Simulated scan of single mutants.
Amino acid sequence: MARIAIDLHGGDFGPSILIPACFRYFRANPQHHGVLFGNLNARQAFKHSCPANIEWIDTNDISDLAHKPAQLMRRDGFSSIETAFKALRDGQVDALVSAEHTGVLLVLVGKYGALHPALNRPVLAAWLPTLTGTAMMLDLGASFTANQQQLLTYAAVGKALASTGEANPRLSLLNVGAEYYKGPEALRLAHATLQGWSDIDYRGFIEASDIFSGQADVIVCDGFTGNSIIKASAGALDLTFALLKARLEHGLLKPLLAWWLKRQLTTVLKKLDPRLANGALVAGSNLLVVKSHGNANDRAFASAIERAVSALALDSTGKIRRELDKLVEKWPLD
Rank of each mutant, 00 (worst) to 15 (best):
R3L: 05
R247A: 13
N286H: 08
P117G: 07
L269W: 14
D273E: 13
A304G: 05
P122A: 01
G38S: 08
E82G: 03
K111L: 07
D238K: 12
I230R: 02
A146C: 08
G10M: 13
A155E: 05
K68T: 12
G11W: 12
L152I: 13
D7V: 13
A45N: 11
Q44N: 07
W259F: 14
K86I: 14
I305R: 00
L237G: 12
A258Q: 15
C221K: 02
G91H: 09
D12G: 11
G38Y: 06
G133L: 04
H48D: 15
L72K: 03
K291A: 04
L40M: 11
F26H: 00
F85Y: 13
I19T: 05
I219Y: 07
L124P: 03
K86W: 00
L237Y: 13
K291S: 07
S16T: 14
V218H: 02
L151C: 05
C50V: 05
R299L: 12
F13G: 03
L8P: 08
I6F: 04
L171S: 00
A300Q: 01
A192R: 11
V218M: 05
R170T: 04
R89G: 04
P51F: 00
E55C: 08
E329W: 05
L189I: 02
S209G: 09
L40F: 07
